[in-house]
Amino acid sequence: MGFKLLSKLLVYLTASIMAIASPLAFSVDSSGEYPTVSEIPVGEVRLYQIADGVWSHIATQSFDGAVYPSNGLIVRDGDELLLIDTAWGAKNTAALLAEIEKQIGLPVTRAVSTHFHDDRVGGVDVLRAAGVATYASPSTRRLAEVEGNEIPTHSLEGLSSSGDAVRFGPVELFYPGAAHSTDNLIVYVPSASVLYGGCAIYELSRTSAGNVADADLAEWPTSIERIQQHYPEAQFVIPGHGLPGGLDLLKHTTNVVKAHTNRSVVE
């Protein structure tokens, strides 16, 4: 069995187990497998329904001669939608809004960016022009300005110390501490036991640490421990890039980060 097929099978099995364990909360999309990078042309966006009122959005972007996937989250909030992270750029984010209108038909009224990198804030200006209120932590807003990236308009308070959590509509926002970046936030959907790890969490097929220019490698494993301790009931975990899975993604990420750190020390 090929690795790609095995990865998709694991996603399907995880979703099936969740649907059985929580039949009222989960209505997993039966329309197909989780979209992969090879299936999404740059400039297009796919939506994948995880649970009743919960979707991931998947886009792709060219970077350094390669094409990478990027995940975000959409959560229903009454007759409105909360968006977590842009679709990595203005063109993708405009396509995301169009796809949401086509498939869901509810307005996106608020959006949260989970850290300051372009795959999370690139497209904020498109959201703002569409009347979406954009939010991020003060740290993310400051770092985005320093980096020359787009800056969300509103500040999220109460997320300055490791372990801080605040309720934001249908989700809980959690600051686990520094990891992929010093400002990275985690998003949890309690009604569906869905954990969105953003770039602080890796997919299972990833074996290298990737972009760690703004990471705190020493603190990252401790931050992941905080996530595990705060959300032990999480059933569906979405990484910032690639295929979702279960809580095993947290341990896998820790292993990859520690291996990278150990290699760096040896070198």
Score class of each variant (00 low, 15 high):
44 E>M: 10
202 Y>N: 07
221 P>D: 13
142 R>S: 14
122 G>S: 08
1 M>P: 03
54 V>H: 01
33 E>I: 08
198 G>H: 00
53 G>Q: 09
53 G>A: 09
177 G>H: 00
168 F>Q: 03
150 E>F: 05
24 L>Y: 14
88 W>H: 00
131 G>K: 12
202 Y>G: 04
60 T>K: 07
79 D>E: 14
134 T>V: 13
252 H>M: 03
42 V>K: 08
134 T>R: 02
259 A>D: 07
5 L>K: 05
256 V>P: 00
38 S>D: 09
177 G>T: 00
98 A>Q: 13
148 G>C: 05
195 L>C: 00
38 S>Q: 15
144 A>N: 04
169 G>W: 03
130 A>P: 04
224 I>N: 09
6 L>A: 07
64 D>E: 06
132 V>H: 00
250 L>W: 01
111 A>F: 08
183 D>R: 00
214 D>C: 04
106 L>Y: 05
118 D>S: 07
110 R>W: 07
239 P>W: 01
132 V>C: 04
47 L>T: 10
117 H>D: 00
177 G>P: 01
134 T>Y: 02
176 P>C: 01
23 P>I: 14
168 F>P: 03
116 F>I: 04
11 V>M: 13
103 Q>P: 04
26 F>M: 07
145 E>D: 08
85 D>Q: 00
150 E>A: 11
90 A>G: 13
44 E>R: 11
149 N>G: 13
103 Q>R: 13
142 R>T: 14
112 V>Q: 02
87 A>N: 03
87 A>W: 00
172 E>V: 11
156 L>W: 02
184 N>F: 01
165 A>Q: 12
186 I>C: 03
208 S>R: 11
73 L>Y: 01
170 P>V: 09
259 A>E: 09
103 Q>V: 12
208 S>G: 10
124 V>Q: 05
9 L>E: 07
163 G>K: 12
141 R>G: 05
23 P>G: 12
106 L>I: 11
112 V>S: 02
259 A>L: 09
228 Q>C: 05
24 L>D: 10
139 S>D: 14
100 I>C: 02
2 G>K: 10
48 Y>Q: 07
75 V>D: 02
171 V>S: 04
241 H>M: 00
197 G>F: 01
231 Y>C: 04
77 D>V: 05
231 Y>S: 02
234 A>E: 02
212 V>R: 09
75 V>A: 10
34 Y>H: 14
207 T>W: 08
261 T>Q: 07
36 T>S: 07
197 G>Y: 01
5 L>Q: 09
208 S>I: 13
138 P>Y: 15
19 A>L: 11
158 G>L: 09
109 T>C: 05
46 R>I: 15
37 V>Y: 12
62 S>N: 14
251 K>G: 11
199 C>E: 00
53 G>N: 07
39 E>Q: 11
44 E>H: 15
255 N>P: 03
48 Y>M: 08
206 R>V: 08
116 F>W: 15
58 I>M: 10
85 D>V: 00
23 P>L: 10
99 E>S: 15
248 D>R: 07
206 R>P: 04
232 P>I: 14
258 K>I: 09
7 S>V: 08
39 E>S: 11
201 I>M: 10
40 I>H: 07
193 S>E: 08
145 E>V: 10
20 I>E: 13
263 R>W: 06
198 G>W: 04
21 A>H: 15
112 V>A: 05
222 T>Y: 07
237 V>S: 01
218 A>Q: 07
9 L>W: 08
196 Y>I: 02
201 I>L: 15
261 T>G: 11
246 G>T: 08
18 M>F: 05
241 H>Q: 01
60 T>R: 10
65 G>F: 07
229 Q>K: 14
4 K>G: 04
182 T>Y: 15
257 V>G: 01
42 V>F: 15
211 N>A: 10
131 G>H: 05
143 L>M: 11
19 A>Y: 13
209 A>G: 11
57 H>M: 01
252 H>K: 05
6 L>N: 08
48 Y>A: 12
150 E>V: 05
71 N>Y: 02
237 V>R: 01
136 A>V: 03
130 A>T: 10
200 A>E: 02
202 Y>A: 08
55 W>D: 00
219 E>Y: 15
219 E>L: 11
166 V>I: 12
98 A>C: 05
